[in-house]
């Protein structure tokens, strides 16, 4: 490659990296407390959520693997992102609301609340390792692309791409990660569209493809298939891949953390939907077409996965630089998301339970240190995986996510499952899958059992078997009912539930405590019959309602109790009315707090609830700083 091309590329990359650092500096100011660092103060809106999610699938592996498939089999190359988008839709339908309603920052935290601490600690390990491995696999991919195009050494490439990721994640936490993902996804969408546009303009449109490629390139899923399915049973391959993605997308801690960071149930659910559409539009057919053009114009890459690189080298310098920056950003966004996910779960599930007296500032500091530690591991692994190959890293990563699926589903849908099942399911499947992946047998033909299938099957079997044994052994009544002391905190929780905060997330945010503390309060209130759960599964389990006994108790403690469910408390009305009065002019939370005479933090926590209930809304795409009252809000205060 001539030097002027490299020069232009370097300029583009430097501008892009500078923009990332700038985002880190800006978002650093947005982080005021640990929740700001770990879950972006639950301020992420629908579009930002959708874009942040799509950055996960728009990864280096997709850009090399799916274009490679486009080159070898044609349209079926879309299968990779197609299956991911399908899982995202399933998440939108069934899991987005549920995981957000728990109020937990990570999957392990929720498992801890639902089953107990032993389950939480064992689950943190595979989740954190999986996140770190997926980050490392991306850095490896990124380094290969940088070396391929710029000709620098692998070591230099790893250092450059990973240090930038560290700098912005360290500074702005989840806000920085999400904001950079936003920039990155825009860049890579441009890269994909411009690539296809340029290919069409240069080599001719659709007819070029249909004219020069065999008919099976246009069948979907066609003759696709791996291992014993190679060349046949395309539909089965499609189903297998869709289920496989389900196993790694649903119980995935960095996707969970993103969901926890959304500003409302609506944003969480619609975010997954937006992500699926973006994936369909930008990273399925168009990506496959890029590979197909490579075939149609007769390129012969050393490996099909290098086809995009060859095409980029044919493009005019500026376009090539833009596309290159787009691919690079796709990889870095996935890496930083994964490092942040590992950081959140380690802080929340391995540090905070043992540092109960830590102040919020200490937690923020510690989470920054943990992010750096995760990064160091990623960095070292990126160097190691160059030798043993990223395939092994991804095999372990996917398998570790998959083994947590049975406990994940059990926590919502199977009330009879208790802690021992989850503990042993995770431990046994963790050990077995680690051995299985490292034995490398699955890499030999017939490639039949990818580690995810082994992982999920063992985890599921152990869960079921231990469940049967435990239920057979522990017959009769489990524990004797002791008299329950309801604490002041519990009374506060009860009062909030009576004000409509009937899901854990509302209580966690409003009181500024952990999910575990809220859950303990709810358990005591349940034992005292002051509240009931609406059901035994899913949302019904999470939703709590105040009983008549609870109302009487609250009244005896001097609280004013609304007699009807869904009637706003006086304080909520005051806030909505204040927002209505101030909507005309620009205001910030400080002014509003003075006006309604509340502590700023208490107010912003109350606003999160009102935002979720769509009584107020915010015009901002990113960080929430101003509010408007909605039509529902107006109606609610008129009553």
């Amino acid at each position: 490659m001539d030097t002027s091309r490299i020069g232009i590329m370097v300029v583009f990359v430097v501008i892009y990296l500078a923009a990332l650092i700038l985002i880190g500096l800006i978002t650093k100011k947005w982080v005021k407390e640990s929740s700001g660092y770990l879950v972006a103060g639950r301020g992420i809106g629908t579009l930002t959520m959708g874009v942040a999610l799509v950055s996960i699938i728009a990864a280096g592996t997709t850009f090399s693997g799916a274009t490679g498939l486009g080159f070898t089999v044609g349209m079926p190359g879309a299968i990779w992102s197609f299956s991911w988008a399908f899982s995202a839709l399933l998440c939108a339908m069934f899991f987005a609301r549920l995981s957000r309603a728990t109020g937990c920052y990570s999957i392990a935290e929720w498992i801890g609340v639902r089953f107990g601490d032993r389950a939480r600690y064992v689950l943190t390990i595979p989740q954190a390792i999986a996140s770190i491995l997926s980050g490392a696999a991306q850095i490896v991919g990124s380094a290969f692309i940088i070396t391929g195009i710029c000709g620098c050494s692998y070591m230099t490439a790893v250092i450059v791409s990973s240090i930038i990721v560290l700098v912005y994640s360290y500074m702005g936490g989840l806000w920085a990660v999400t904001m950079t993902e936003f920039l990155q996804v825009i860049l890579l969408c441009f890269a994909v569209v411009l690539s296809v546009g340029w290919l069409m303009a240069t080599y001719g449109g659709w007819s070029t493809l249909t004219g020069s490629l065999p008919a099976h390139f246009f069948h979907y899923p066609g003759k696709l298939g791996w291992g014993v399915f190679n060349g046949k049973w395309g539909l089965l391959t499609q189903i297998g891949l869709a289920v496989g993605f389900f196993l790694i997308v649903v119980p995935n801690t960095y996707i969970w953390t993103k969901t926890a960071a959304t500003r409302s149930m609506k944003s969480a659910q619609r975010g997954f939907w937006v992500a699926a559409i973006l994936a369909y539009v930008f990273v399925t057919w168009l990506i496959a077409m890029i590979g197909m053009y490579g075939k149609a114009i007769g390129l012969e890459p050393a490996s099909p996965n290098a086809i995009y690189g060859l095409l980029v080298n044919k493009m005019p310098a500026i376009l090539a630089a833009l596309v290159f920056t787009g691919i690079l950003s796709a990889i870095m966004s996935t890496a930083s998301g994964a490092i942040m996910g590992a950081g959140v779960t380690i802080t929340r599930d391995l540090y905070q339970p043992f540092a109960k007296n830590a102040t919020d500032a200490q937690v923020t500091r510690m989470s920054q240190i943990i992010v750096v530690l995760c990064w160091i591991i990623v960095f070292v692994l990126s160097l190691v995986f160059k030798a043993i190959g990223p395939l092994l890293a991804l095999g372990l990563c996917f398998a570790y996510f998959a083994i947590t699926l049975p406990p994940f589903l059990a926590s919502f849908y199977f009330p009879s499952v208790k802690e021992p099942e989850v503990f042993w399911a995770v431990i046994v499947s963790f050990v077995v899958t680690t051995w299985y992946v490292l034995s490398k047998q699955w890499l030999q033909p017939p490639h039949f059992f990818h580690p995810i299938w082994v992982g999920v099957a063992i985890s599921f079997i152990v869960l079921v078997v231990v469940n049967f044994i435990r239920r057979a052994v522990s017959s009769g009544s489990e524990k004797s009912r002791r008299t329950i002391e309801v604490t002041d905190r519990d009374t506060e929780v009860l009062a909030l539930i009576a004000q409509g905060r009937n899901l854990p997330i509302y209580l966690i945010d409003e009181l500024g405590v952990t999910a575990r503390e809220v859950n303990e309060s709810i358990e005591r209130l349940l034992a005292a019959s002051y509240v009931t759960r609406r059901g035994t599964r899913a949302m019904g389990y999470l939703t709590v309602d105040v009983t008549d006994a609870g109302r009487t108790y609250l009244a005896s403690k001097g609280y004013t109790v609304q007699d009807k469910v869904g009637v706003l408390s006086d304080i909520d009305r005051t806030i909505i009315a204040a927002v209505r009065d101030m909507s005309a002019k620009k205001f910030d939370i400080t002014t509003l707090a003075e006006r309604v005479n509340l502590d700023e933090r208490v107010l912003s926590n109350k606003l999160l609830y009102l935002l979720d209930k769509e009584l107020v809304s915010t015009p901002e795409l990113f960080r929430i700083s101003t509010f408007e009252v909605t039509r529902r809000g107006l109606k609610a205060i008129e009553v």
């Binding site: 839709l89 339908m93 066609g222 619609r270 699926a276 057919w285 529902r632």
Partner: peptide, 30 residues
């Protein structure tokens, strides 16, 4: 051109999900 079937499938899935999302939101508001 059987890949167009999967485009159709994708569109149908997106619509079904949208209906489910709206349904969940309506339920929550009641």
């Amino acid at each position: 051109m059987s890949w167009l079937w999967s485009v159709l499938f994708a569109i149908v899935m997106v619509i079904i999900t949208w209906v489910k999302i709206r349904n969940d939101e309506m339920e929550e508001n009641n």
